[in-house]
Design a protein around this nucleic acid. Structure first.
Lengths: 226, 226
DNA sequence: GACTGGTAGATAGTGAAGCTATCCGCTATC
DNA sequence: GATAGCGGATAGCTTCACTATCTACCAGTC
């Protein structure tokens, strides 16, 4: 197929496809002459993957490229996981400050206690330290025990993910599964958690009447408080 | 204190504080004359909250404002949760397409089966539908059962969160806890999940040798791994 | 009481990100 | 051979989150 059909099949505008080609997210089509090229199913698939990672996963174009580069590399799944994690992790700001050392200590202790084979310097650990430090910063150390409460559940989820992704599939699919599981899975789980928040809060607070978390304003602009 | 000290105490540059004032994220200080004002601890606290939500939680400035508006409102915690969820949810793209109806059906069934008192039209449900639809789009419906696998775990986490946040505190702290628990908690849990991925993957694949998910290329700058 | 330096508020500028539009020479197809 | 579409290059646009500059003013110091 040519570019117009690729655009039609994926819903991505032609100029945007050209942009992705320029940025190296999408491999060029096969040349049929100096200024003509054809595309195939692999391009359709790749474009859908780009849109999924960017729109659903919320990754920047640069991060999508890094993640897809990792998928394309011939490395072992474990290496790919590392590359994906490095790619998707948001940059951590200051690695110091009043509470940083305290937070770092606490994360180090957690890794030790749970016997997790993960390094304190790895990207997710740095994110975790930053999040914990910010709890101290805003004066809510009472909430920091969420760390220890979350840890076993995160481990259970990770076991689910890994089991899910490694069972009976080729290496290609496993690696792609790692990427999708990490990125799309995070979006899914976050949304589920917020849905569960609605439910549990309603139960706990005994909300009985009609409630509606629908998409915002009933007939007004900006504010949704009357 | 005056603006220079507010800046020093929080590490936020003066022009940025002015920007936050303009954007309505920070309440103006108390006037002492037509062009002088003083700030207090509440401003320090608020600024730290802004930075936590923006940097750790990854929210845009507009979303931070919406979230803080919700915190400031005199509504019930349940209403605040709804407002926070509306504020933080990333906009969902197309609400149609080949697989949308299928995904929506599946989410509706899940809500029913688990007895969750949450609406299919609520922001997290829409996000969930979009994520599920993208799995179909990229041809990985084999991974869609993550939905049912994640659900009970999300519920357990939500119970933890709600229990944690409502126990023995004033209404103010509870509401702030809802916000922090939702936003910072998500960052924490995501990081923990990725850390657990490292661990579980290493275990499953029998990785024994030294491995290092450190920040990229060895011998570079930045690294605080030995 | 002049001087120095900080202050509020307004306006304008900056740089990155993610497209979008236009142009050019060429080509496939009717 | 007319015409619609193509690949590739370049330039422009919009949004976001600041950052810089300017003006009029004020507070403390010598």
């Amino acid at each position: 197929m040519r570019m117009a059909e690729l655009s039609r099949r994926t819903g991505v505008p032609v100029p945007t496809i050209k942009y992705y080609l320029r940025e190296g997210l999408l491999l060029p089509g096969e040349r049929t002459s100096p200024n003509q090229a054809i595309y195939d199913e692999s391009h359709v698939r790749r474009l859908r993957m780009i849109r999924a990672l960017a729109e659903v996963g919320g990754l920047s174009i640069a991060k999508v490229r890094d993640v897809l580069d990792a998928v394309d590399s011939p490395d072992e799944p474990f290496e790919v996981l590392g590359a994906v994690q490095r790619s998707i992790e948001p940059p951590v700001g200051a690695t110091d400050g009043e509470h940083w050392a305290q937070a770092r200590e606490r994360v180090a202790k957690l890794l030790l206690e749970r016997g997790w084979r993960a390094k304190i310097g790895s990207p997710p650990a740095q994110t975790l330290i930053a999040a914990l430090a910010s709890l101290y910063d805003v004066g809510r150390e009472d909430l920091t025990d969420l760390l220890e409460r979350y840890a076993p559940m995160a481990e259970k989820i990770a076991e689910t993910d890994v089991e899910r992704v490694t069972r009976g599939q080729g290496i290609e699919d496993t690696i792609e599964g790692v990427v999708i599981g990490t990125v799309i899975g995070e979006t899914m789980f976050g949304a589920l958690r917020r849905l569960a928040h609605q439910h549990v809060t309603a139960m706990t607070l005994g909300v009985v009447e009609e409630y509606d978390f629908g998409p915002g304003t009933a007939g007004g602009s900006g504010s949704h408080l009357e």
